[in-house]
Structure formats: C-alpha cells, structure tokens
Design a protein around this nucleic acid. Structure first.
Lengths: 215, 215
DNA sequence: CGGCGATTTGAATTACATCAATCTAGGTGG
DNA sequence: CCACCTAGATTGATGTAATTCAAATCGCCG
C-alpha cells in the first residue's frame, strides 16, 4: 500500500502555468489548494525576519506539494517554466467523500514529506558539505530519471542549492569543481552536466596522486 | 480553527507506562497507533547505518506523536518515566467515521509537526550554536510552562540535546556554562535550573567588562 | 565505598564562512 | 548582428566557530 498520485486525476482541477522565477504562493497567504507538478521544477522555502532563507524542498514533475492546510507556512516558486495541476481543497474533500482510499492517500503523501524532511535534517547535522552535495546530485538524478553516463540537468541556482543544503554558495561552487575533478560530473553547459556516478572513488585516488605530483 | 487534542478522548484508548530510557517503538517496526504524552517526555529519533543519531523532536505532556502510518520512520524513547495514551489506528478510523472534525484534526496535527520541522531545519542552517541553545532552553521553558524566575527542568541528556541541535555534546556543555555566565540560567541541580530569560542582554555586557578586567 | 556513565574542561585542528575581486553567459537595445 | 550590461558563478585569501581528542571530575546506584 503506497502513495498513488494518479488517484487525484478524478478530482476536479485545472492546469496553470508559472514562468521561471514566479511565485506560485507566498508564505503567510491563506492556503486553498494542493498542487501537482506536471512539468518543470518548484522550490519550497521559508524566510525569516532577518532575510535569511531556508529552502525546504525541490519538487519535480509527478510530485504533489502544499504547505499548510489553512495558511501557507512556506512560499513556492517556479525554478523553471512550470506547468501545474491545481486541486482546490473543496475538490479534495469531494473526492474523499467519493473514494475512501483518497483520504489515506493524502495522509500517506503528507507522511512522505515528513520522512524526507526528517532525513534531510539528519543529513544537515551528520554530513559534511561534500557529502551533502554528492547526495544532492544523486537525488536530482533520481528525481529526473537521469541515466548514469547521460545528461543531468540541475536547474536551480547555486544560491538555491546553498540555501537547501545549509552551506554558502561559494562552497557549493567549489564542491561542484571537486566533483568534476573526481570525474563524477562533467560540465557540458551552465546547470547541465554529464553524470558518471560510478566514477567517484577510483578517480578520486588518481587525482590525489596527481595533486601530489603537481605540488 | 486549530488543533484540539481533547477531541481524541472520545476514541478508544488505553494508558501505558514507559520507564526512563525505554523504547516505545522502534524505527522500521510496523506502525499501529498514535500516542499522546500524559506525563513525562519522549524523544523521537532516527539512526543511520553509520550509528549516528538525529533527534527529530522532544514531545512533552499534552502533545500527540506518531512517526509513520504504516512503518515507523523513527524510534520513540521515554526520556523520563512517562505515561502515554495509546490510540490504535482502528480507533482513529472509527472516530473519524463518527466525527468529521476528527479527520481535519489529524491533518492539522500532521501539518503542525511539518511546520515545526521546517522551522527547525532553518534554525540548524542559519543560527550558530549559541542561538540554538538559547532557543532550545526558551522552547523547553515554554513547553513545560516554566515561569520566568522559577525552576526549569531540562530532563534530556547533553547528548540528546546535541543530537537534536546538530552540535557536539562538549559544545552543549560549554554553551550551558556561557548561559550561566549571562545570568539567564543558574544551575540548582543536574538537569535543573532557575530560569531568568530577561537577564540575558544586560548581564552579558557586565560579563564582558569583567572578562577584560580579568585578562 | 567503588565503579561507571555523563559531564566538564583544555588544547589543537579544520572545515567552512566571509570578504573581495574577477569572470561568464544570456539578455537587451542600438 | 554586435557590444554592452547585469546577475550569477567562480576563485583566492583570510578568519573563526565548532569539532576532535584527551583527560579530569562529578554524581548516581548498586
């Protein structure tokens, strides 16, 4: 028994588009719907009074998201040009009344986000910056179904990645460079790489030897 | 419209006791109930393969908790001798069928934990260790309704606090010492303090002057 | 009283942030 | 179509908060 996004299709909804960088909803605004990403990528974030920003999650095609039942506890922004399905709350209650599986489905999807967040919290504490970046790249590859050896698009800015992983943008930049030197990534365009997950360990050793020779 | 823990009382449940240090459930075990802390304090945590531990939340009297609908994504342990109400899932579904408010109540409580976790994530990234500790102490004071100027019990170990805030136990110890030097806390027994939240800023300045004189 | 885990303290190290200066790509207007 | 322009990205140098390792101390419980 697991989460089934297709179940939502029988609820009333409409497609909406959001251009790159545009807000889908703002932290503090009243919440009235649940969303599913059909195409593109969305960023969920909270901001505090001091102006600092925490990116809570990136949502790729196929995933649903919301942030609060009554008031949005986070903002949502389109990272790329994005197409969304919007399911108003009333349509969801209607669906739940017609199909009891839907209620369980909603609870399971909420639980899924909770689990993700809990594990992300653990990663923030117990992993160093390089481990976080490598995890992040592998995670994006999985979300976008990028094949090993193929092309990997990482559509968000270095700043977004930094605010997600809790490190400085400069450090993100440096660690991407490090991943390239291990052969795990090769840059083919800005925010686009070729992805070689297996190349990590062995080439790292070669590079160390090379570094010593250079020094 | 907000969360109402009392609504649960009309669901079938029984009281259970957990001695200090005992597990209430384990990460990975099948989940079959929701719990409410009647007396004492509970720790929710996840552990990874490497043996490192992330404390997700501390739950005080009056709060409900669970970790997953089907499988527990975290373990729960009693920090002090604890009394719990256990609400089996079947009793909850029964309640939901009788009282439609209950379903919304469950969703709201899940959302509350999600919000807490999101803000905790932000704190871990954007606050330094001392800010985290002061926040934590103030938070425990609020949870346990400790009055300013009165006694504050902080029942969890330094290690638990460290794994919650993502810092080393030694650092926790040093920062508690720092809070004592500002007058915000005075130690009256192990894990028991007298609590002076307003004393923070002004006495901190006095201490700096004193430090300079001593140096 | 003795033992053992929890806590505290100290000294040395380091990973990361910060500050500041380029560099690059993509969009815009002439 | 090209030159500019600006936000994002990169790179280097420097500082520091917090970890780590190690040792002493405390407090609880048998």
């Amino acid at each position: 028994m697991s989460y089934d996004p297709q179940l939502l299709d029988s609820a009333s909804h409409r497609l909406i588009a959001a251009l790159r960088g545009k807000a889908i909803f703002h932290q503090g605004d009243p919440a009235s719907a649940l969303y599913r990403v059909e195409h593109g990528c969305v960023r969920l974030q909270i901001g505090d009074a001091a102006g600092s920003r925490q990116v809570i999650a990136f949502v790729f095609a196929g995933q649903t998201f919301c942030a609060g039942m009554e008031t949005h506890w986070a903002s949502a922004h389109a990272i790329t040009d994005t197409v969304l399905s919007r399911f108003p709350h009333v349509a969801l209650w209607d669906l739940v009344a017609r199909d009891s599986r839907a209620a369980l489905n909603l609870l399971l999807s909420a639980d899924e986000l909770l689990t993700d967040l809990a594990h992300h919290l653990g990663r923030m504490s117990h992993s160093d910056a390089y481990e976080r970046i490598t995890w992040f790249v592998d995670w994006v590859a999985k979300q976008t179904k990028a094949p090993p050896g193929g092309t990997l698009d990482i559509p968000m800015s270095r700043h977004d990645i930094a605010d997600f992983l809790g490190i400085a943008p400069e450090t993100v930049s440096r660690l991407f460079r490090r991943m390239e030197s291990t052969g795990r990534l090769r840059r083919v365009a800005p925010r686009r790489f070729s992805y070689h997950p297996s190349a990590a360990a062995c080439i790292a050793v070669q590079t160390e030897v090379g570094d010593q020779a250079a020094a």
